[in-house]
């Protein structure tokens, strides 16, 4: 198009047409991605938000706006409140154990020369397996009569313990499985983080009298793992918040609702009772928690972990 403009005119107003052309081209390039984001993320989210203010039920012909009724009902609902408590409890156990446990194991495994890859594979195996399939194995393991855990607890003198059917212990058992599932993944991330710490820093620390295990960790390892730790913490907490499959397969929220978690209750409301509007409100709450968590961690940790 600019080729037909006479040379004099073009040189006089070159700046404007060219930058306009660039703007058009830029928009054209950005458009497919923008449409995709809109279609698969923004619009569904908005539909969800709108549904959460209605009494829509799956298959119903009509629906009507109910304002904040769903949210009011939600926070008055004992089941929902209990699921919130259970979820937070679950996260409170899984998050620290899976993050610090993974860090501990990563440091130990990192120091191995020959057996390192063996341990990497062993710890990573649970990540590659399907949790639903592995949950059946756990069901056998934890079975009070058949499983080795039950036999062990008898041998140790704790008597016959039925972890999955004890209201005080069931959530703990699920948390243990949750840790087992995610710790290998976190360990691999930490090992990647450990491997890029310059050896010079450890040597400088050794000359600065920070050569002992604790001082090395506090002076070099822990600060240098900052970005890794932030990432691991965020992904682990989101994974823990969304605990679902082990609940469905192993306890179905029982015994006595002691393992009812946010996502499980949400699933019941939406897909078993078809109360879509109510489930949408619940989803919004879950979403709010996850967003708040990510933002909080990003802000709190970001200030301390980036050096450049």
């Amino acid at each position: 198009m600019s080729a037909v403009v006479p040379a004099a005119a073009r040189s006089a107003g070159r700046r404007a047409p060219q930058s306009r052309l660039e703007a058009v081209a830029g928009t054209a390039f950005a458009l497919p991605a923008a449409i995709l984001i809109l279609a698969v993320l923004i619009v569904p989210l908005m539909v969800l938000a709108v549904l959460s203010f209605t009494d829509y039920r799956l298959g119903a012909v009509g629906m009507k706006a109910v304002g904040l009724d769903n949210y009011a009902a939600l926070f008055a609902d004992g089941v929902f409140r209990r699921s919130l408590t259970n979820t937070f409890l679950y996260v409170a156990i899984v998050l620290p154990v899976s993050v610090f446990g993974a860090l501990f194991i990563a440091i130990l495994v990192q120091a191995r020369a020959r057996t390192r890859s063996f341990y990497e594979v062993v710890y990573f195996l649970p990540v590659t397996s399907t949790l639903v399939a592995m949950a059946t194995v756990w069901q056998f393991m934890l079975h009070p009569a058949l499983g080795p855990v039950g036999t062990l607890s008898v041998d140790l003198g704790f008597g016959r313990v039925d972890l999955l059917n004890d209201p005080d212990l069931a959530l703990l058992a699920l948390a243990a499985i949750g840790v087992w599932q995610v710790i290998g993944f976190n360990m691999v991330l930490f090992m990647a983080g450990l491997s890029v710490i310059p050896r010079d820093l450890y040597e400088a620390a050794a000359l600065d009298r920070a050569g002992g295990a604790v001082d090395r960790f506090l002076t070099v390892t822990w600060p240098m793992l900052g970005p890794t730790t932030m990432f691991v913490t965020i992904t682990s907490s989101i994974t823990a918040f969304k605990v679902f499959d082990t609940v469905v397969v192993l306890t179905r929220g029982g015994p006595l609702g002691s393992t009812e978690t946010l996502l499980y209750v949400l699933y019941l409301e939406g897909f078993q009772y078809f109360r879509i509007g109510y489930a949408a409100a619940m989803t919004m709450v879950l979403l709010a928690f996850l967003v708040a968590l990510s933002v909080l961690q990003a802000f709190a940790l970001d200030r301390k972990v980036h050096y450049q």
């Binding site: 040597e203 050794a206 000359l207 600065d208 009298r209 920070a210 050569g211 600060p223 240098m224 050096y307």
Partner: peptide, 21 residues
């Protein structure tokens, strides 16, 4: 003696400064 107890200081090629401090 450990490096830290030898009463020597070292300047590294990469400087090896603690980036977070």
């Amino acid at each position: 003696l450990l490096p830290g107890d030898r009463d020597v200081a070292m300047v590294f090629q990469s400087y090896a400064l603690y980036p977070h401090l």
